[in-house]
Structures are given as C-alpha cells and as structure tokens.
Design a protein around this nucleic acid. Structure first.
Lengths: 238, 238
DNA sequence: AAGTGGTCTAGACCACCAG
DNA sequence: TGGTGGTCTAGACCACTTC
C-alpha cells in the first residue's frame, strides 16, 4: 500500500466517524503532512483522492472542508457494472439460466462494437439472471472467442466475470454505456415475466480491457420496476 | 493555463491527428519532459489527465501506449447533465414552455433531497423543453429560493443554468443521478405527445454546488425513442 | 542489466481569501 | 499581511518489463 492511499483511508475514516464533522474545516496540509510524516505533495495527493470521491472540498486561500454530502449512503454511489452481478449483489442468491450459447462470425454491428474483423469468431450468448428466485435481467452478450477463451456452460451458470478476472487474469479498464427505455420484446415478456405494456430499461455497454481492447458488447434488459441505474458524478478539478 | 494542462492539450492533439498513432508507444516520460522543458513530475501529471480521459494506457516497465479506443467519437462520451440543455444541444432551436411556477414549502421528500428545513421555501416548476419544434423533455424541478434567487418566468423560458452560472456566479460541483424507465403519466401523454404504452425514460437528479449544498432536485422525463443516456467510465488508477 | 512508469521528498513560488 | 491550497522542480528510490 502506498503512502497516499493509506493516508486517504485514515482521513476517510475520520470523516465517516465524525472526527472531522460535516461542513467543518479540517487541518491544513502542512499540519497534516507533519502528523503523517510525509511531504506536502504526498499529503495533497491523499486529499486529491478524497476530493474525487466527493468527501471534501478545497478553497484556495481558505482551507479544506468536509462536504455536506459526505455522509450520504455511498453503497450504490459507484456502480461498476463490469464487476458483474455476482459481486454487486453479494448476499443474494443469484442463479443463471443459459438460454442460448453459440459461436459465430460477427455481424457488422458487432464487428464495430468489438473492433474486430469479420473472420474473428465471437461467443453469442443469452442468459437470464435470477436473483432470490425472481427473474432480474436478460443479458444478450457478445465476446471475441480469443479473449474469453474456454467459456463453458458451467461457467456461464455462475460468474463469467469471476472467470475472466481470476482464471484468465484479464483486467478491465473501463466501459461505454448507453441507457434507454424500450417496449418489451417477446423475449422480455417470456423470461422477465412482464406484461405487454411494462417498459424495459436497457443498459447497452462495451467493456474494455486495460489496454483498450473491447472485450464484451452486451445489452442487459430489466423490467422497469426492478432496477434503476444510479451514479455519482463529481466535478473533478484535479 | 498551467503547464500540465497545456502539455496534455498538445499531446491530445498529437493523438487525435495521428502523430502518435493508435496502439503505438509514445515517447517515454524523460524524453517528453525534456521536449517540453518541465520536470518529470509535471510531465506525469499531464499524462494522468490523458489516462483519465481514456486516451492512453501506461504499463510500468514497458511504456505508454495510445488506446485502441482513442479515436472513438467523444462528443457524447461525457454528458454533463448540469450544463443544461441549452449548452448541450448547441445549434438546435430550443424553446421552453413554463407549465407551472410556484413558491412553496418543501415536502418531506424534497426536504431530504435538498437537505433543507421545512420553513425554507422552494421553487417548484414544471417546464416543457422543445427542441427543433418537437417536445423533448418534461422537467419537474425544485430549487431552494435562497440559492436560485430572483428566478423569473423570463429566465425560465430560456436557460436557467446560464442564469445560475453567469448572473449568480454559482459553480456546480457534481450530481447524483438515478435513471429508470416508467410508464407514461397523464402529464407525459399530454405534453410529450406519447401514447399510453410508450415507455418513458426518467433521469432523477440532485445537483450540488462546489461546496456541497444541494441546489436542484429534478425529474426529467423523456419519451423512450427520443433520448438515451450515454456515459464513459474509465477505471482510474491515478 | 537497462529502461520504463510510480512514488516520494524538501523546498520554492504563486494565486487567492481572510483579518 | 499571514495563511491557505495549487503548481513546479531536481533528484532519489522502487517495481516492473524486456532483453
């Protein structure tokens, strides 16, 4: 663990425990760097992290303050969709039903999203994820076979992301997402158990590896009353 | 303009113009710091910006590479909802119809979202935004009267955000958003011109000022076929 | 072993806000 | 005017990849 992370963790703890109360001024960078025995640059880097998290706010010439919003419940603030459901909904019983599992050559659309050529085969799979016994999301996923090598039905019934991460050792770098509302398709009505006038929330995403190679293109469809998508958006002036 | 921003701009330009081609190795930090006559720390800070933007990827021991995704059209990558529509849809004809404009004491829900007491009056307004002659979004907005002072119908027919920013001199610090799909309400059907089975995309948000005071709570409702919400999500290891 | 990026330092100067 | 945070430096050491 590097110093600035350790310091950020300690100060975060103080804020959450109320040692530095909401809306209060915290000690200045010089005092803090003396307390933690680090240089002021390192101290500032620790505070940069907390500022990006929206816990503190700094005003040149004045000081560093704890944000009014610091104690809002942060549990769903940062949704990392590419952590996968299994990690997001820890504590719930998650099962998967594989509805389709093919290998095929990509369509024009898939080629573009995954930045691959037409002779590069892709997995094309459809999974229904079931949380605590209720249908939760219908996922249509495409992945290049040379990146997600060795996928099996067995894996798909549990966590694909765990497999990718821990077995294949690949690291995710980010994602582009598009969220929209849609009318329910036949598939949605059949598997998500929704009526013909129940709207559907679709999250369309391309997930990238750390080196920028597109790894997955997927469309995840939810019944309108079972899922909303939350996000925090901090104006980073770092 | 500080040095590291200027350098980041220059290198971004080189990437977009193909001087540093996609997937290629760019010069190392020492060479670049010599070229720009800055210290290596400053050079690294410039590269940090580009890494956060998803343009480059660094591998310790190996070098700095241009991401495969660097040339994707970035125009809608970063959506700053709190810039307001007027800025987002520059070039389109935007008009507004004020449907409701009241001052009232806040409900429990509004008090919680805006973190205010029950005796603090709020504006409660409903606006229909019309883009190029077509109804685009129906906004239900609540703002504390002591922050958005002096709001008039005249202002609401144009850009509230421009007024807040330029006339009142307030700076936005971030936002929490929740996106969901919904069935159309009577209001939606009347003003957004949608049928009874047309889904609606709702963006519910609390916008904060730089010092963390909640400034606006709003629900923006769009017909499902006129709007999707896109976002880029870079795994920042800075 | 050589070269890369990541961290950290001690000190300097600056812009800004408060009294 | 004194204190705050923001930037920048020159150099050091470390972790890691590549050869």
């Amino acid at each position: 663990m590097v110093k600035y992370e350790a310091i950020a963790n300690e100060i975060r703890k103080r804020i959450l425990r109320g040692v530095y109360p909401v809306e209060s001024l915290i000690p200045d960078q010089i005092s803090l760097s003396k307390e933690f025995n680090v240089s002021r640059m390192t101290m500032k880097k620790a505070l940069d992290i907390l500022a990006m998290e929206g816990l503190i706010y700094r005003q040149r010439g004045s000081g560093t303050y704890v944000m009014k919003t610091a104690l809002l419940n942060k549990q769903d603030a940062v949704v990392n969709e590419y952590d996968g459901l299994t990690k997001q909904l820890k504590g719930h019983e998650i099962t998967s039903k594989v509805i389709q599992f093919n290998v095929e050559f990509p369509s024009e659309e898939i080629m573009e999203h995954l930045m691959i050529k037409k002779n590069q085969p892709v997995y094309n799979l459809i999974r229904l994820r079931i949380v605590d016994g209720k249908p939760y999301v219908l996922e249509h996923t495409h992945m290049p076979t040379d990146l997600a090598t060795g996928l099996t039905e067995e894996i798909m019934e549990h966590s694909i992301y765990r497999y990718i991460h821990e077995e294949l050792g690949l690291q995710f770098g980010g994602a582009f997402r598009k969220i929209h509302a849609d009318k329910p398709s036949k598939y949605d009505q059949e598997y998500l158990d929704c009526k013909s006038d129940d709207p559907v929330l679709e999250v369309e995403q391309v997930v990238y590896l750390k080196d920028g190679r597109p790894f997955e293109y997927s469309r995840s469809r939810h019944r309108y009353d079972t899922r909303s998508y939350t996000m925090a958006d901090i104006n980073k002036n770092i």
